[in-house]
Write a protein that binds this DNA or RNA. Sequence first.
DNA 1: CGTACAATTGAAGGACATCAAAAGCGGTGG
DNA 2: CCACCGCTTTTGATGTCCTTCAATTGTACG
Lengths: 258, 258
Amino acid sequence: MKGDSIDNSGEIHGHCPTCGVPHVALCEGRSSETLQTIARFKSGDVLVKAGRDVLRPGEPCESIYNLVSGWAFLYKLLEDGRRQILHFALPGAVLGFHPSEGMFSTYGVEALTDSVVCIVHHSELRTLVREHPEIGMRLAWLSSRDRVLAYDKLASIGRQCAQERVAHLILELFIRFRMQWPGHKIEEMLLPLTQEHIGDATGLTGVHVNRVLSKLRRRGVVEFHYRRLRILDPDKLADIADIDPQVMALWTRQSLPD
Amino acid sequence: MKGDSIDNSGEIHGHCPTCGVPHVALCEGRSSETLQTIARFKSGDVLVKAGRDVLRPGEPCESIYNLVSGWAFLYKLLEDGRRQILHFALPGAVLGFHPSEGMFSTYGVEALTDSVVCIVHHSELRTLVREHPEIGMRLAWLSSRDRVLAYDKLASIGRQCAQERVAHLILELFIRFRMQWPGHKIEEMLLPLTQEHIGDATGLTGVHVNRVLSKLRRRGVVEFHYRRLRILDPDKLADIADIDPQVMALWTRQSLPD
DNA sequence: CGTACAATTGAAGGACATCAAAAGCGGTGG
DNA sequence: CCACCGCTTTTGATGTCCTTCAATTGTACG
């Protein structure tokens, strides 16, 4: 925290009183009995410095990581070093969930800011689900939501031009950000990304992202400069990105409907 | 079936004796008691003609669709008609699983060949999972596997050149196909796709896919002509696609490990 | 105040798209 | 069996969006 007026690197609203696991992830709406069960199963919190890997590509998938605070991103590397960013994770995300033990992660997870992750071993997760079936369904829910988000990006990267892709990513992050901190009505936020990150997430080069951003600034749509994002014209942005913000908000919310 | 030596449009090996739901999907390894439960919950099989939608984009997600036989693909449309194919579904796939009711599908599902889908309503699914927790975990497993596949495509489309993308898609389909019909050791198969489909799946134009395919044929890697695919040099293909076939096979298999 | 990293700008080249036309294949009906 | 039709594949010419390489400027932070 740097005494900024903008602060979105920190805690999510509401944690399990017993275990510090964010409400938004596994615990949302669970009875306090269940929460205590989860607390029993977790093996500890870990602080990960910005730029370090939470999970290295190719590592065995022994645990799931609950992102308590900070930003992270999932990425994949090609042989020759090219990098594709798959997803940006906000506090409350469940990371590294893989269907089964004995597998090796096909992607890596890197902390974008200093982050805290809460670790639950896979073997314990299985027991946990047996005792509390609704958590299995919740995992399916989270997993499927990430799948839908990945599909969204696929269409964007596969079929949209550079300007549309950048607009798409920015709007996605903006909406997901606002869902997390509903208090903030601001159209200005701190995005802990470089233009290089945006390039790696949109399948473009950092250089070209820069050119696209200047055009968007000149058109009065968005400003992004040294991690400070300002949405000037949300409607025009949604129009360029070809996103219905209502629908996106539904799909990116963290809590289950009734 | 046209009396071809190649036949991969039909049934998957082994169905639930009671309900016709393929083993590979929800039922794999379930007790016969559970199978009968699933049979109680399913609301019926439906035949979908090639080219028709199993699920239209924007439709309410009221049911999940178990693909009993045939090929289908998930797709997304942009405003102006551009299409991105998100995933090709083989027999045994669970389609249209969305985390909750009251949502509208953000993508469509179209039958590639005449197909049979088995429908289970969402409300019934919820009850089913309450009674049989392991099915919830299995849904999470399936969902997460599709997510990993989507991430794979994201890296391919975002960071690979045309030749690599096409090689990637072909190898993915080839490996997934072989996992389904382990009997077939053949490197020749019937792929019910046009080059236009490959283009829509790789973010290229059909025309350019054609040029890439001719180059791959001239290099002696693969032949694809009027839906007939022949892998000439699997190793070179894997090399171009930047895929480890072993890893891909692990991730695309249909059955849970012990 | 200096250093490291991020953003910005320019010039040149390449990969893929677009448009258009011809040829090939498969199914249908005479 | 042949002729026809629609769909798919193939090929060519031209354009453009994005990349690459390189140099400069700007910002944050110790």
